[in-house]
Design a binder for these strands. Sequence first.
DNA 1: GCTAATTGTAATTTATAAAGTTACATGATG
DNA 2: CATCATGTAACTTTATAAATTACAATTAGC
Lengths: 151, 151
Amino acid sequence: MKISTRFSDSIHILAFINICQGIIPLTSNNIASSIETSPVVVRRLMSALNKAGLINTVHGAADPALAKSPENISLYDVFLAIEGDAHLFTIDERTNPQCIVGGNIQETLDGFYQQAETAAKAKLARISLQDVIDTIRVKQALKDAEKERRN
Amino acid sequence: MKISTRFSDSIHILAFINICQGIIPLTSNNIASSIETSPVVVRRLMSALNKAGLINTVHGAADPALAKSPENISLYDVFLAIEGDAHLFTIDERTNPQCIVGGNIQETLDGFYQQAETAAKAKLARISLQDVIDTIRVKQALKDAEKERRN
DNA sequence: GCTAATTGTAATTTATAAAGTTACATGATG
DNA sequence: CATCATGTAACTTTATAAATTACAATTAGC
């Protein structure tokens, strides 16, 4: 249980590529500065995003680009790229098979957890990177307007 | 990071109390044997379940009991008792506030994650401990029948 | 009441997964 | 060809949960 910040950071990377393309060079260093992490962590995540076909990267060149339009990249696509078939809930695999509870709890919970997990993933599948980008821009515009108002 | 099995183990404990009551003494030791963990871990979880009003325990006596009927205990009740308001997805809190992405990503993801998380928790809220117990019994009956058939 | 068994909890140690770091081979670009 | 960037492997650090140890508080059988 508990999905690591890799998922969040990956969405961050994709949004950054879209929003900052042409404004600043998209080096792993610059991206890492925005996430406040190390460039290697960024490159690791981008490697996975590349393999999953969400971005196109060029070995040696600081020129990554989204492989699809942001409307066609869902948060579940990102989750799959980074976490694969990881589960939101963890089943204790080491229980006593001799006991009626210990011997059947895994299969039982697996079914129920699946329901909850699928519901969550279905929601993620309906949220696009474009939604994320739009929301970021709205929030930023709000901040800018607020700042302007104060002058 | 180490993934928690507390939620699963807590459901295990509740099912065990219901199914094994009157059959074997419900000591933390016996429960721990079924989960294959230590009695202290079991007592810790039971302490939380007790505080949340899901079970009644007696200090010094090996006699825990469900505080409500299994139909009226949902998996979300258990989740709340053990994990509180813990999130299924983790937002990276340390990003560069100067960057348009780093400065707005938390609030943005929080909203979207909330949607997914609520969907999952709503499913959990609709699954009762009775459902879990019923499923365990069905699976066990299947195994028994299978075993019988082989003789 | 006394003894044995049990819970409840704190403190400590161990295990594990992710984050971060170092290093370097490979490839791009002016 | 010099510089800069990526892609990855190997290693270290850090965070969190599980397991262990210890013991006070409580119950229950005799």
